[in-house]
């Protein structure tokens, strides 16, 4: 019995620490229900950060998957997520978020803070792609009607993935950005533009140096 107890304790240690923030979820209970997020669009307005959140919902098994949008404002990124959480009865769930669209300003001067804020969340994945919006605001890009092949955020992420696979664009998911920035190296983020007909497409890469300098490639 003693041996068994000892082994169970050892096994518990081996499995690592359970994330305290990873709370139990009941999918049919509003209080614990999770709200899957597919994409984020972050911009800066009047010295405040504005985050547009694209959540995805499906009301019944035979129903369509549809996106829903809401925006929050805050002075920093951590507060953005906190405010978004406070707005919802359910839990903001970033595990399925695949893309974050940011403005050029944020890309140049606040990318480190943004990455750090995302890393702080236990549910955010390190594979989230970050793209830069050009000629439109990030939320306009995210909500562009012509992209809506199901969920816009997911469609944009798939598009970028496809384009990085054929090496048209550099592949810079969040973990690589983090790695490059820690080593003081330049990062290359894809640039998304909104055409007159409302179509979103990747245009080029924006190369951001550690001091905030940019060049397009």
């Amino acid at each position: 019995m003693k041996k068994l107890l000892l082994l169970i304790i050892c096994l518990l240690m081996l499995t690592g620490c359970q994330q305290t923030k990873n709370k139990r979820v009941e999918l049919n209970q509003n209080a614990g229900q999770i709200l899957p997020i597919s994409a984020l669009a972050i911009d800066k307005e009047d010295n405040l950060y504005k985050m547009t959140i694209e959540s995805i919902r499906q009301d019944s098994l035979d129903g369509e998957v549809s996106p829903a949008y809401f925006s929050v404002k805050a002075e920093n990124f951590s507060d953005l997520f906190y405010n978004a959480d406070m707005m919802l009865a359910s839990r903001l769930y970033l595990s399925h978020a695949s893309i974050v669209i940011i403005s050029e300003d944020i890309a140049r001067f606040d990318i480190d803070n943004l990455v750090n804020s995302l890393i702080e969340r236990p549910d955010a994945r390190l594979t989230i792609r970050i793209a830069v919006a050009e000629n439109s605001t990030p939320d306009e890009i995210l909500q562009a009607p012509s992209v809506t092949d199901g969920i816009p955020g997911m469609a944009l992420s798939s598009l970028l993935e496809k384009r990085t696979k054929d090496q048209t664009f550099s592949d810079f998911p969040m973990f690589r950005i983090l790695d490059y920035r820690l080593n003081g190296r330049d990062i290359a983020l894809p640039v998304l533009i909104l055409s007159d007909d409302g179509h979103v497409s990747p245009k080029s890469n924006i190369i951001i140096s550690s001091d905030g300098g940019v060049k397009y490639a």
Binding site: L27, N28, Q33, I34, P36, S38, I56, R57, Q58, D59, S60, L61, G63, V65, H96, M154
Partner: peptide
């Protein structure tokens, strides 16, 4: 994502 949504929808 699709499976999560389907499961959540089934639980509604």
């Amino acid at each position: 994502t699709r499976m999560l949504l389907a499961l959540a929808a089934a639980q509604k």
